[in-house]
């Protein structure tokens, strides 16, 4: 699959989509995230029925957290389509993929736990690896751990 071709299809399906291509991934605004994901899942050409990897990256210089989502198709054995969403660090809210994919459940909880991204629409957004009373999100670049000076 050619990235230009995917881009053309995407723009045809969702007009007025502010879309940026970065390498082999798409950067989309969070408002359009679910509709773009739904397009890839439901269009017969792509049928991306499988979300493989959901994670986040912290960019302190840009003051944003980036959510990275890899979609594949098990049916057509193709992929990936990489969708990136950037959310501001002071208010890191974005829609949850759990509405479309059950597989997003644990991975989004992990990204919430370690990065603090709040996934709206997630039915059970709790910490998963750290304990509930833990404060802060340790995978952020500005996180200072208690024993840092040791």
């Amino acid at each position: 699959m050619n990235i230009q071709e995917i881009k053309d299809d995407l723009i045809k399906a969702i007009p007025n989509l502010p879309l940026e291509v970065e390498g082999s991934s798409f950067v989309i605004p969070k408002e359009k995230f679910l509709s773009v994901a739904r397009f890839f899942k439901e269009s017969p050409k792509y049928s991306m029925d499988y979300v493989s990897c959901i994670t986040a990256v912290d960019y302190p210089a840009k003051e944003c957290l980036e959510s990275v989502n890899h979609l594949y198709s098990m049916q057509k054995k193709q992929g990936p389509v990489v969708l990136k969403v950037r959310v501001p660090k002071e208010n890191p809210r974005m829609p949850s993929l759990t509405a479309l994919y059950r597989g997003a459940e644990f991975q989004e909880r992990e990204a919430y736990d370690l990065f603090g991204i709040i996934y709206e629409g997630h039915s059970d957004l709790r910490r998963i690896l750290l304990w509930d009373e833990f404060e802060g999100h340790p995978m952020r670049k500005d996180y200072v751990s208690e024993d840092q000076e040791l």
């Binding site: 029925d49 499988y50 098990m74 994919y101 059950r102």
Partner: peptide
């Protein structure tokens, strides 16, 4: 199985050829 991102032998035991 597909929707919940199950992979490996567990997915194939459910009959998905992936």
């Amino acid at each position: 199985a597909v929707n919940a991102s199950i992979t490996g032998p567990m997915l194939r035991a459910s009959g998905v050829n992936y």
